[in-house]
Write a protein that binds this DNA or RNA. Sequence first.
RNA 1: GCCCGUGUGGCGGAAUGGUAGACGCGACAGACUUAAAAUCUGUUACUCGUAAGGGUGUGUGGGUUCGAGUCCCUCCACGGGCACCA
Length: 865
Amino acid sequence: MSLDISEIAPYDFAPIESKWQNFWLKNRSFSTDCNSSNPKYYVLEMFMYPSGKVHIGHVRNYTIGDIFARFKRAKGFSVLHPVGWDAFGLPAENAALKQKAHPKNWTYRNIGIMKSQILSLGFSYDWEREFATCDEKYYAFQQKIFLAFHKKGLVYRKKSEVNWDPVDNCVLANEQVVDGCGWRSCAPVEKKSVDQWFLKITDFADELLTELDKLDGWPEKVKIMQRNWIGKSEGCSIAFKSSAGENITVFSTRPETIFGATFLAISPDHELAQKLALSNEKAKRFIDEFKKGSVAGEFLDKQEKLGLDTGITVSHPLLEKKLPVYIANFVLMDYGTGAVFATPAHDERDYEFAMKYGLPVERVIRAKDESSGELPYLEDGTLINSDFLNGLSVAEARKVVIDRLTQLKIGKRETFFKLRDWGVSRQRYWGCPIPAVHCSKCGIVLLAEKNLPVLLPPDVDFSSPGNPLDNHPTWKHVECPTCGVPAVRETDTLDTFVDSSWYFLRFCLNDSNAENLLARKDIDHWMQVDQYIGGVEHAILHLLYARFFTKALADCGFVSIREPFRNLFTQGMVCNATYRRENGEWLFPEEVRKNKGGDFEVIATGEKAIVGRFEKMSKSKKNVVDPDVIVKNYGADALRIFVISDTPPDKDFPWSDDGLEGCGRFINRVWRLFSFLESRGVCAAQCSAKVDLESLPAGIRELYVGFHRTIKNVTDAIEGRHMNKVVAHIRDGVNSVYLALDEVESHRGIFSLITRDLIKMLAPIAPHICEEAWERFGFRELVSENPWPTYEEDYLKVSLINLPIQVNGKLRGTIEIDPEEEESEVFAKALRLAGVQNAIARGALQKRIFIKGKIVNFVVADAET
RNA sequence: GCCCGUGUGGCGGAAUGGUAGACGCGACAGACUUAAAAUCUGUUACUCGUAAGGGUGUGUGGGUUCGAGUCCCUCCACGGGCACCA
């Protein structure tokens, strides 16, 4: 007597999962080189910061990537799927302070821990390409890139106001300032003037913008965010003759409104304002007040428009008219020219200001329908009160007025960007040293390539404040590479975003040629990244820098491509329920229970607990789940399935213990199925090539043909990155096999075919159980090395369908027919349905709609209406 | 304020303009069991009805269409990004 399916022992995943993980690693199953004749495919997930523990969010990110990598491999691609560590950065130094561990030891220890966690999830990585950005070899090369950029004129130094983080004691890039606060410390940012190294990302502003249009494989959302960040404005700069002597140059994107200009506004930081403050007490006070406000920074959004009449006037360039000049707090010095002409009638901000200070408003654009007399008027229309522009449309007028101003030599077409150059200096130890020295004779000198690398000194002291490199007794003292006199090393290190701006290139190289990025063969072979996967939080920072680096490296001759990532996928965050006490203090889920009334209470005290929203898992909100615990209790396969189930991968994922439990059950269900089939003599490794459909009984034929539909569904879903649907369709397939289990012994051949392809389709998601089943069914090679299943197009055509019959668009019944059935025959059958008869009897039949194989709709004029 | 996205059962979510709710979670029931768990098999949008069979349903209000979750317009709610960018 053979075993009933319910008697099969549960799946003991632990030994099986470690068996295959060891096998893959030992046999270098996923190692790649560029000698394959298959087309290449480069799958990359954003690499990890070695904080100490892998987060469930990482698991989701890497699972999505791994499914894709395994799928593409099965589809016959030569897949590069590397892994590495974004290992420089602040937390290592914080740990050094707190735990008295050297940043290097702390970092590499964390990498060790996290690597074992990652290995326990069974990802198909090429571990031979693994590296950390703090590896000497890696950052040594980064220094060469820095020199190359310098040679190309992309590096410069500038004394400038920078964002100073008073808590982390370091400079922040514009992009690292969130709502006026440091992105990590959340402390209000102060302004400070420091000598800084800058990378000229603005040289590429136009290209970074226009190339976005070609990135078809990127989410629109990310492209929009980058577009806004680059912030291109095309317009015209215009010089106004001023009573103070010098001209005031303004920038406007709407020069056609110049006849409506009633005043000029300049920034409190404008040269003229600064000059005025020297002699004018009122102006000085106004500017000082402004500075205070801007440092506090909190009311920026609601800040009232304030201005001060300077008493200075300018001449309107096209009218016999003087305009007053105001210092205004809403004019930014670091955008455009720091001065604007104001046309209150057609600009909201100017209008508000004019109202407040009683300045004239002159309308120069008439609405098309003339109905809108409301001001400010911001829409398109026809120019009025504007001399030679009268009667023109806004677009025409813009062109004409710029031409005229250019001709008169008082204006010129100009473009401004919001994008600023990238300040890369950090006053930190744990980063890539900037290869430069300060010489008393020669000034700042960059090292020659032969003097590289500049390695971090291992012996550093974190006990005193500031940069340990600066405090180091010997490290910074060197000879000037140019004149040989004693000089001092640059003690700033590079922003860690520099490290992550080219790591995807390093992955293209083996360890053997890693030091020679100029040997471009491998890079040319693998780049671009065909599928990049990561969090949307990097939409601007990392993704823009990486694009910039690729373009700059191309200009320096390192790479051939100008865009690094062909397809980008941004996955959602993993969220979990949150609980708080009434005083707002967060609670662990274990501290809370549901009471009889259905409300939540704190177990220890019985006080009321408030159920919060699902929030991104974070330690502070006490709602994190530890991947190690899940893997231990449910196995890697169950966790992998769970993190991609149910929710589209680009959406936030709501964690649920029940859902995870369900995936554990599913893995068991699959295991029992495989075991049962094996015990009934199903031999997947010996499938017959041909199936005679006609000879099969209807039920089995339906099962087999239906399974081809499943293969198509799964394949399409995975290609479209709809991982939740992939799981749903596979479950569908498993369910239909379960329902046909009585037939196994009489149709072993069909069940063998189905089993073989089911394993193949599940393998990218749950590779361990599939590798094991594959082996037990008698296959020699790995399922990971087998081609993806194919389906018969012919089988997708169904012999009978349920055709919906509608009356006035409402479903009144269905008829089972051949999809090719002719119109008249279908109508005849449809009209025999009782529901249809009843509905039609209410009025006169006016029209009949027939869409072959899709629908029938009878249109009836309702007698009652 | 501007830009983008999202609104579908108790929940996560399916649905080339053509039978709304695939798949899963939860719940309920049956089988197996002394029993429970596990497992297998069903049922499960709401509503009227014993039933047969009706009616109502995809945030709101309108429109296009034989037919709208899907396309167009209006408004509302939630989420995200940018935020005095001239």
